[in-house]
Write a protein that binds this DNA or RNA. Structure first.
Ligand SMILES: NC(=O)c1ccc[n+]([C@@H]2O[C@H](COP(=O)([O-])OP(=O)(O)OC[C@H]3O[C@@H](n4cnc5c(N)ncnc54)[C@H](O)[C@@H]3O)[C@@H](O)[C@H]2O)c1
Ligand SMILES: NC(=O)c1ccc[n+]([C@@H]2O[C@H](COP(=O)([O-])OP(=O)(O)OC[C@H]3O[C@@H](n4cnc5c(N)ncnc54)[C@H](O)[C@@H]3O)[C@@H](O)[C@H]2O)c1
Lengths: 214, 214
DNA sequence: TAGAACTTGTTAACGCTTTCACAACAAGAA
DNA sequence: TTCTTGTTGTGAAAGCGTTAACAAGTTCTA
């Protein structure tokens, strides 16, 4: 139960998704090197990540998929489930709502908020959309500690501060600015412009490849 | 002109956007520590990144914003501009089209593709949407080397392979699977589910903080 | 049973990235 | 001019995450 690193948690999430896929295919066991190719990593890394969750496989049979997935779940999921709020129901916000709607039982978007009164008090992709003025009360009532920001960049800092005041401790931020918040708030930025520029750069320059001596 | 690291390229993209914002505010010079707080990093890192692009500021005045932005552009942008293709014009694809439409002159989405014949041969957010059957010819004609994948996970691998055959060398992948492609193709994954699970985890556990001795 | 074959768990080495620390330097003040 | 102040550029150190390597272990074969 010691603190896991950022990257390890990300990979655990990926592993679990892959494991669930394997369960659906009827597979029962998997080796670290198999999981590694699915996850795009190395076998050593998979084993090291398993150390972090404390799950132990068996030599010659590998990992029991169902047990391992459950083990990761015990580690990552809130036992009582966890609610998420979405702020900003624009083009991106609606796509996100559509995507996450009813997909994950233990991690669902429970409420959406938008400053536009035209969008408020409607149900979008199965999620009730409230006006921003009600955010504090609803976030408190549903015990929301996690939020997704999909408002224009100019609004993001103010919205983030408001969320933190309402008790939010983790933010997934799509606005292309860096938020300034207390250190105990975890912020993950998804900066599509930055990502696209990286891809564009490397698709011209090529990835710096390790030179292989002939 | 030596190879830059992944992370450095990402930050350069961010710096440039911040610099452009400052130019709009009429600022002409900036210190490394100012840029650092905007970018959410440290002054030392900013200076090291500047080393990478080879631009030299002046002590006591800092960096000339306009020159620096131009310097980064010379480093990152294709001189003749660069076209991007979007595959999959669903909920997410349309949001992306709306967002990038007409925003960046030197890095524009020039063509969209979708397997659904209902979506083909229409103009969506100013971008022509073609049927998948025409992808090869159009990608070749427009000299497209960069693509965004926003198709369902089950289709992503096949679409990616098709893109690579058509000459694409960099892919921004939104589908929640790891693509298996030749090593010279640069792939950046944006895995929203993974990111959200990370945020959910750390919003409960708190970020592993450095213990400060009293 | 003994041995072969292949796996896991774990420590140590490695490499990449960030941070530190400071010499060199520019600009203004005295 | 000379001193003070606050910056940049950069080698060296530190930190962090990944990879390599191998002992210990499990199963199958004979
Ligand atoms: N659409 C994309 O694909 C995309 C890509 C990259 C980044 N982004 C970023 O994501 C964010 C949203 O993008 P979008 O395309 O959905 O924009 P959008 O304009 O379509 O939607 C923004 C929504 O936020 C609401 N809003 C505005 N101010 C608000 C406030 N103070 N409180 C609550 N709600 C408020 C608006 O009413 C609107 O519904 C932006 O920051 C954008 O830069 C979007
Ligand atoms: N919507 C989101 O916010 C979101 C979030 C996370 C991940 N994703 C991922 O992004 C991808 C797209 O999501 P979406 O919500 O836009 O899905 P969607 O179903 O709305 O859109 C998918 C689009 O792809 C097209 N398509 C299907 N097969 C194709 C093929 N072989 N070639 C070309 N086009 C094809 C479909 O016609 C459709 O227009 C999915 O992989 C999804 O997992 C989306």
């Amino acid at each position: 139960m010691n603190a896991l690193s950022d990257k390890t948690v990300g990979r655990l999430s990926l592993y679990r998704r892959l494991l669930n896929g394997l369960v659906a295919d009827g597979v029962t066991h998997v080796y670290s090197h198999q999981l590694a190719v699915l996850a795009g990593g190395t076998a050593a890394q998979v084993r090291r990540d398993m150390m972090a969750v404390g799950y132990t496989g068996s030599p010659k049979r590998g990992y029991d998929i169902r047990e391992l997935a459950q083990s990761i779940g015990a580690f990552m999921d809130a036992p009582e489930g966890q609610g998420v709020a979405l702020i900003g129901v624009g083009n991106l916000g609606r796509a996100i709502l559509a995507y996450f709607a009813g997909r994950r039982p233990h991690l669902a978007i429970q409420a959406a908020f938008d400053a536009d009164p035209y969008k408020a008090n409607r149900v979008i992709h199965g999620c009730h959309c409230y006006p921003m003025t009600e955010m504090d009360t609803i976030a408190a009532k549903a015990n929301i500690r996690t939020a997704i920001i999909a408002v224009p960049a100019t609004e993001a800092q103010a919205v983030a501060a408001k969320l933190v005041r309402a008790g939010v401790r983790g933010i997934l931020n799509f606005a292309p600015i860096r938020l300034h918040l207390p250190a105990e708030v975890y912020v993950e930025d998804i900066d599509m412009t930055m990502s696209l520029e990286k891809v564009a750069y490397f698709s011209r320059k090529g990835r710096a490849e390790k030179e292989v001596n002939s």
